[in-house]
Write a protein that binds this DNA or RNA. Structure first.
Lengths: 149, 149
DNA sequence: TTTCGATGGCTACAAATGAAACCAGTTTGG
DNA sequence: CCAAACTGGTTTCATTTGTAGCCATCGAAA
C-alpha cells in the first residue's frame, strides 16, 4: 500500500521549519514591544522604505489587506506612524514612521540581524549556500505561476 | 543608518514560502474533502503509522494539543477514525482510521505526491539537492537547541 | 496507603485571521 | 457628462488559533 511520509513531505517540512523559526523570532518583537507579526512587518517595511501606502506594504510583506489595515491602525494608535493623504488620489494614504516608530525600528534591526546570524551560525558555509539557492529556486518557481489566465 | 531588508530576511522568506506552498496545497484537501490542515495532518499521520495516540500525533505532525484534539474530534464525527482506550493507562486513547478514513487517505496520497512532484519539477537537479540539504541543515540546527536547561 | 506532582486529553475564553461586503473616491466608455 | 466598473482602505462576521485552566488518571515518594 502506498503511504506518504509526512516528515519528508516538502510542504510539511517547509511549514514546520518556518513556523518554528518564526515563532522563535516572534519572541524578540513580542517580548520587547508587544508587537504582533503583522505589526512587526509593517514597522520593518516602513523602516526600510521610508514611506509606503498600505497596498504597497501588503505587497512587500505578503500580507492580506486586512492584516495591513489592522497593523497600521495599531501602530498609529501607538503614535509610531502617521498617515498623510495623497495629493492627487484621495483614497491613498502615505504612511511614515514617527520618531518613536523609527526609534523602535532602529532598536529592532540589530536584534533581527543577530537572530538571523545565530540561525545561520550553526550551518557550514556550504549549507548556507544550499539554503540560499534552494529557497531562491522554490520562490521563483512559485511566483512565476501565480498569475493565472 | 542601518536597515533590514525584509525580502531577504530568512525568517520572513521561509514563512512566506511555506505559507504560499501550504496555502496552495491546502486547496487539494479542502476542495476534495473539506479538510482543515490539522485534519489533513491527522489523517496523514494515522494513515502512515496505522495507530497513534493524540500526543504522538501532536509530536509527529508538530501540532498543538488543542489542534490535535479538535481535528480528531472532527474526524471521529465523520467516522473516519475510532478511539480505542488503552488497556493499561486509561488516560490514553489509540486512534485508528476506519475503512472510510483509510479510503480518504488512499485517495489523498497520490494527490499529495503529485503536488510535491510538480513543485520540484520546476527546479534543476542541483536545486533540488540544495533545498534538501539546506532544509535538513536548518532543521537539525533548530531541533538541537529546543531542549533548554 | 495517601498524597503530590506529572501527563493525556478536553474545553472555555480571548485573540488573530480570512472572506465578503462596504464606503469613498477614481477611471473609463458610451 | 454620467453610469458602470475598479481601487484603496476599513469593517463585520464567522472561523481558526492559542492560552490557560480543567478533569481524570497515573507514578513516585513518603
Amino acid at each position: 500500500m502506498d503511504i506518504l511520509e509526512l516528515e519528508s513531505f516538502l510542504p510539511y517540512r517547509l511549514y514546520r521549519l518556518a513556523d518554528a523559526v518564526s515563532r522563535e523570532f516572534s519572541k524578540v518583537y513580542k517580548d520587547r514591544h508587544g508587537l504582533t507579526r503583522p505589526e512587526w512587518r509593517t514597522l520593518s517595511g516602513l523602516g526600510q522604505r521610508g514611506t509606503m501606502t498600505a497596498t504597497a506594504l501588503g505587497e512587500q510583506s505578503a500580507m492580506h489587506k486586512t492584516k495591513v489595515s489592522r497593523a497600521v491602525a495599531e501602530l498609529e494608535r501607538r503614535r509610531w506612524l502617521v498617515r498623510t493623504p495623497d495629493e492627487d488620489d484621495r483614497r491613498v494614504e502615505h504612511l511614515t514612521l514617527t520618531k518613536a516608530g523609527l526609534a523602535a525600528y532602529r532598536e529592532m534591526v540589530p536584534l533581527a540581524k543577530a537572530f538571523e546570524r545565530e540561525l545561520l551560525a550553526k550551518l557550514s558555509v556550504g549549507e548556507r549556500g544550499s539554503i540560499a539557492r534552494g529557497l531562491a529556486a522554490l520562490e521563483s518557481g512559485l511566483t512565476s505561476d501565480k498569475n493565472g489566465p
